[in-house]
Design a binder for these strands. Sequence first.
DNA 1: CCGATATGGGAAAGCACTTTCCCAGGCTAG
DNA 2: CTAGCCTGGGAAAGTGCTTTCCCATATCGG
Lengths: 348, 348
Amino acid sequence: MEDARTRVTLQDVADRAGVSITTASRVVNDGSRRVGAHLARRVHQAVDELGYTANLQARAVATGRSSMVGVVVHDIADPYFSSIAAGLIEAAGARQMLVCLSAAPASEAAEREYVALMRAQRARAVILVGSRTDDAAARAALGEEIAAFTRQGGRAVCVGQPLLGVDTIVPENAAGAGALARALVALGHRRLAVLAGPRGLLTAQDRVAGFRAGLAAWSIGLRPGEVVHGAFTRDGGYEAMSSILAAGGPLPDCVFAVNDVMAVGALARLRAAGISVPGGVAVAGFDDILTLRDVTPPLTTVRLPLKRMGEMAASLVLADGEPGRPRVVPVPGEVIMRDSTIPRLPPA
Amino acid sequence: MEDARTRVTLQDVADRAGVSITTASRVVNDGSRRVGAHLARRVHQAVDELGYTANLQARAVATGRSSMVGVVVHDIADPYFSSIAAGLIEAAGARQMLVCLSAAPASEAAEREYVALMRAQRARAVILVGSRTDDAAARAALGEEIAAFTRQGGRAVCVGQPLLGVDTIVPENAAGAGALARALVALGHRRLAVLAGPRGLLTAQDRVAGFRAGLAAWSIGLRPGEVVHGAFTRDGGYEAMSSILAAGGPLPDCVFAVNDVMAVGALARLRAAGISVPGGVAVAGFDDILTLRDVTPPLTTVRLPLKRMGEMAASLVLADGEPGRPRVVPVPGEVIMRDSTIPRLPPA
DNA sequence: CCGATATGGGAAAGCACTTTCCCAGGCTAG
DNA sequence: CTAGCCTGGGAAAGTGCTTTCCCATATCGG
């Protein structure tokens, strides 16, 4: 077996060094116990000559702990998630954790399946990044799987809504959208519309609700036709904007897309319609996606420290808190006013 | 130990079902051998009651094969990589592989380290996504680590330059840039400049070289001052464009940024300088990044099927070719002409 | 100079599985 | 009626590692 020859084990190392496998093991994971300098050298030499690398799987079985952490995002190609993932991967790498990534397109059933897989892998932790949905049944099933995972000794962390009973990094969607709404009204916008994202997604719902609350502070309401749903994507924004245009009435002063990606879609749709921004309609987004900072006109938005949020999630995995009392780490959003919401006329 | 109680093993299942651990194992991985219906039912029931999940690590140790594949990209927040990763993750997930992701910022030393980690994990495969560098020594060291990995039974796949002696998905950077150059000249552009990316990166070098070759077909050359290096990022493009402006001479007809992200930086710099695009200077990029399709003016570029490339890489992992003869899968780029390169005057 | 205490090495018992090999019982074919 | 074969169950030997426990030697205080 060519295979067999090349697969060198600790036993091979021990044999070649003329020591017991115990001693070889102690040398390889130095620190566990002192080994005489002479034998240690012999073992090291054998390791080099044989090109030995410890089998981490076997080690994990023997010790009962692994360094794997599972991360599930909705869509890694979406800059929102890839930014968070970047922070997560960097921080996890620095802490010697092995990150396994999976994509579960906003489906708690798929997330559940991945948590089950991580449970089978005896992963140290699982991190669920992204909005919860309003499907209570699916959420409960997911929660149960997570409970099984934590009961087994794993940690669970979520980035999104604190609805799973685990440590959670919570972007303040409602507060941010509220602040944005107030700022827009302060600028002079009076008739607002919202491109509201998918119906079931709580992040979208929170942002709409927060926006609505912010407007309410100025006694401004949103009528049904002024809230139009669509996918959380560029095309979703494009189409949602389309249906606002198709409705025919007078254009709103300002359109709030619940994320930047949709806002860009809306900009594209308006450009296609020959409507200038902000001259014809103002547009605002949410997230402050880095790659989207150079669109024209520059987009008013609510900045979320995405990369930082990923790092925070990674920290939570290590910092073991008291069980039963999940920690909640709120992350405020910062309103960034740019050209896309300059009012048609300065406020009277 | 609360821990001990909740960690249920196959032995526990066997005990509860009143069968041997052998039988329990056979039932759990059904298919290995027939088991009487009666006992099978008892085992299944025990599994359910105990909430048993097989320990995949232990299984991997026992069987000697794992389903893990390691992926290393330069920067997951970069849309180029996140798109490829998206394809990879989707395809790998469909094939029941577990994807572990790491970021190694264009450093072959870091990649080497990760390959070593995957070797220790006894991963089934490792996929290196991204440009090789011109550091031959580092590349050799990486090659050696990969060789050790494959010798051990792992597969290795690369997306980039076919320089590692492993199966490789090769974007045709030179050919694409060449085609772009010819198209730009055909449009009437005569004085060209290149924002060339980082010096050591072969992908950047290939694109510059291909562009140069394309121009040569029209007997047009690039003088030293017309090729300026910079980071493979938005800011890199911004600064490279800055130094072209700072040089003072007459503006080139068209600037080719070797990737879209840099092109967007260049657009931003030109906007800051009050130079219109394409009125003042034309700008072209490379990659056709999805999130950047809506910048203004729409960017002329060379489209690479990024997501598809990720899927192809995942396929290569499974399709085992003959050893010693690494496969090379070229991926052509498609020139996409958009508004950013409309010439100042129509060609005479 | 002797018993107490480090010190460092190794045998063996895990860890949670798979898989080979053996065996008992039931069936069929001759 | 019996040799031979299939079926399904289990004991036990791996898989590659860690860790406990035991033991021989060396060191040290009194």
